[in-house]
Design a protein around this nucleic acid. Sequence first.
DNA 1: AAGCGGTCCAACCGCAAAAAA
DNA 2: ATTTTTTGCGGTTGGACCGCT
Length: 255
Amino acid sequence: MVRAPCCEKMGLKKGPWTPEEDHVLVTYIQQYGHGNWRALPKLAGLLRCGKSCRLRWTNYLRPDIKRGNFSREEEDAIINLHEMLGNRWSAIAARLPGRTDNEIKNVWHTHLKKRLKQNQPPTSETRAYFFSTKTEQEPEPSEKSESLDFGPASPPQCTSSDTSSATTSDNNSNNDKTCMEFDGYAANLPEADESFWSEVLSAENSDQMVDQFQAIGGVPRVGVSPADNGFCLDMYDDNSIDFWLNIFPGADEIP
DNA sequence: AAGCGGTCCAACCGCAAAAAA
DNA sequence: ATTTTTTGCGGTTGGACCGCT
């Protein structure tokens, strides 16, 4: 594997972009697209390397980028998605429309880490359940449990697989679901192996994620009912459901 | 007003994966 | 199948900005 030569070539500009450069880049991409980033700066007449152009476009100039401060809901979403996905900023960004991985990474390092240190978890009194499971389609425990191993690659927020740690499963304690604890909050999950969760969490889009979950008998939902079996992602109030449905559009809302 | 330290964010760097040749 | 090129990602940095002393 040979690393692509970077913009060390003499004559290529580095540092902050000027409005003129932005204009040139935007105009070119609007007209011709960005088929080949490496060739683009030459064709567009920019003294930048392709990498710099791509970064400028994806992180700043793209028309679908939402500028401005992050809302509390967005911050909470980042915290929860970070618990699920770890430092996979692009995966997190994929679930936050209009936000870039760079921006999310910055927010995480500048605000959210601090917020968590001050022990301010996501707000609200209720939990949003994105996924609940069908008991009648429960996978065979004997088949699945052998490979059930929520190690580091499984949802990283999992602190325990001990079903006795459940705090919300009193009314579903008679089913065979795996219960996981999420930083003190428990959730009932369908039994699945590590690779399943890796696939779910790395799914390129939410439809795919929902499909993966349905494949093992899960019923994707978004709602606030604490009574349902669910893959507990977060704690939110009713007003947040639209926001979350935007992130997981394939889910059904719990009535 | 000046100096200093902390914060924030755009941009860079290096690596690895994916795609193309 | 192998090599080369391109793209994408995450970690890090530089400097502008702001508030405090």
